[in-house]
Structures are given as C-alpha cells and as structure tokens.
Simulated assay, not measured.
Amino acid sequence: MTQEKVQYPQLFLRLAISATMLSAVADRFGFWGENSAWGNWGNFEKYTEQLTYFLPESLSTFSAYTATFLEILFPLMLILGFKTKIAAYGTGFLLLLFAFSMTVALGVKAPLDYSVWIGSAAAFLLATQHKYNFSIDILTQKF
C-alpha cells in the first residue's frame, strides 16, 4: 500500500489512540460524571496501588502521577504530529507496561476487556510508519 493510501487511516489511528488515552485521564479527574470508572483522583490512586502492589506506597503514588503526565503528553504529541515516532513508541511501551501490570495484579481478563494489548500493538504499528502526514513532523521536514 502506498504512503498516500495510508495517510488517512494513520491519522485516524493517531486520533483514536489519543482520544482513548485522554478519555482515561478525564475519567480520573471526574469529567465523565456517572459514566466514570474511577470518578476522581483518589479512586485512581487506589487503583494504581492495586496494580503496583509490589511497589512501596510512595512509588505507587509517583507512578500514578507519572502515568497521568505521560497519558497527557503522548496523546497531545500524536494529535499534533510532533515527534510522532517517539510519542508512538512511548505510548506503546506505556500501554504495554500497563497491560503487564493489569495481568499480574488482576488476571488475564482485565487487560483484554479494556483492549490495552490492542492499544499497545496499535501504537507500535504507528511507530513503524516512515512518514506522518497531517503533522508538524512533515512540516518541519520541508525546511
């Protein structure tokens, strides 16, 4: 498939991954109201402690803040198409780490139900692209 035929599906993939991650962040700040999984930061920290039970509490809290920061940073980079390959790899590894943590702490079913493996694989597939149309990256290559 030529690069021209891939440009719209690739953009859709960037936007879909970004929307999914930003939705999770919105949830932990209570923006989804009654449709929330966590509903507030405190519940998200408890969930993070459950997933990172093997870490001291201070590192578990740090991982909640770090994950949230990265779950805002990487999607914004993907939406803008800024350092897209780095953002895609970062997203892939972040979701892979999340999937492994969920599997160890909650069992095999949880990351499958939330499509975390698919998100990670999609981000890694996005990272293999040679060119990112509709992006800041493509604009800066012309100069």
Score class of each variant (00 low, 15 high):
Ser60Leu: 10
Leu70His: 10
Phe62Ala: 15
Thr2Gln: 08
Leu95Lys: 04
Gly30Thr: 04
Ala121Val: 10
Ser63Gln: 11
Ala121Ile: 15
Leu125Phe: 15
Met21Gln: 01
Phe31Val: 04
Met102Asn: 04
Leu11Met: 11
Tyr132Pro: 00
Ile17Ala: 05
Leu22Asn: 07
Ala64Ile: 07
Tyr47Glu: 13
Asn40Val: 03
Tyr114Glu: 10
Gly90Ala: 00
Ala67Ile: 06
Thr68Leu: 02
Ala19Trp: 08
Ala64Lys: 01
Ala127Cys: 07
Met102Ala: 11
Gly107Arg: 08
Ser135Ile: 00
Ser101Asp: 08
Arg28Ile: 00
Gly107Ala: 08
Phe12Pro: 04
Thr68Ala: 06
Leu59Val: 06
Gln7Glu: 12
Val116Ile: 14
Trp32Ile: 03
Leu97Cys: 09
Thr103Arg: 01
Ala105Thr: 01
Ala37Phe: 14
Lys5Ser: 10
Lys83Pro: 02
Lys109Val: 09
Asp137His: 05
Ala16Thr: 07
Gly42Trp: 06
Ile79Trp: 07
Thr68Gln: 03
Lys109Asp: 15
Ala88Trp: 02
Ser60Arg: 07
Ala122Tyr: 01
Leu112Val: 14
Phe143Val: 12
Tyr114Leu: 13
Ile136Ala: 05
Thr91Pro: 04
Trp41Arg: 08
Ala110Val: 10
Thr128His: 11
Leu94Arg: 00
Leu55Lys: 06
Ile17Gln: 03
Ala121Cys: 09
Ile118Ala: 13
Gly81Asp: 01
Lys85Pro: 12
Trp117Ser: 08
Lys109Tyr: 10
Met102Glu: 10
Gly33Glu: 01
Gly42Asp: 11
Leu59Met: 12
Ile72Trp: 11
Phe54Met: 15
Phe69Asn: 04
Asn43Lys: 10
Thr128Tyr: 12
Leu51Lys: 05
Ser18Ile: 01
Pro56His: 08
Leu112His: 04
Asp27Tyr: 06
Phe143Ser: 14
Tyr114Ser: 13
Ala26Pro: 07
Trp41Met: 09
Ile136Arg: 05
Phe134Cys: 05
Leu15Ser: 09
Ser23Lys: 06
Leu11Thr: 11
Thr61Phe: 13
Leu112Arg: 07
Leu22Gln: 04
Ala87Glu: 01
Ile138Val: 13
Pro56Phe: 11
Asp137Ser: 07
Phe12Gln: 05
Ala37Lys: 09
Ser60Gly: 15
Leu22Lys: 03
Leu126His: 11
Leu94Asp: 00
Phe12His: 02
Tyr8Met: 14
Ser36Tyr: 01
Pro9Leu: 05
Ala88Ile: 02
Asn133His: 13
Gly90Cys: 02
Ser60Trp: 11
Ala26Asn: 03
Phe134Lys: 06
Glu57Asp: 11
Pro111Val: 00
Gln50Asp: 12
Lys46Met: 12
Gly107Gln: 08
Tyr8Pro: 03
Asp137Tyr: 09
Thr20Cys: 05
Pro75Thr: 02
Ala122Asp: 03
Leu139Cys: 11
Leu51Val: 10
Thr68Lys: 04
Trp41Ala: 06
Asn35Val: 03
Tyr114Gln: 14
Leu112Ile: 14
Leu11Gly: 08
Ala67Met: 12
Pro9Glu: 07
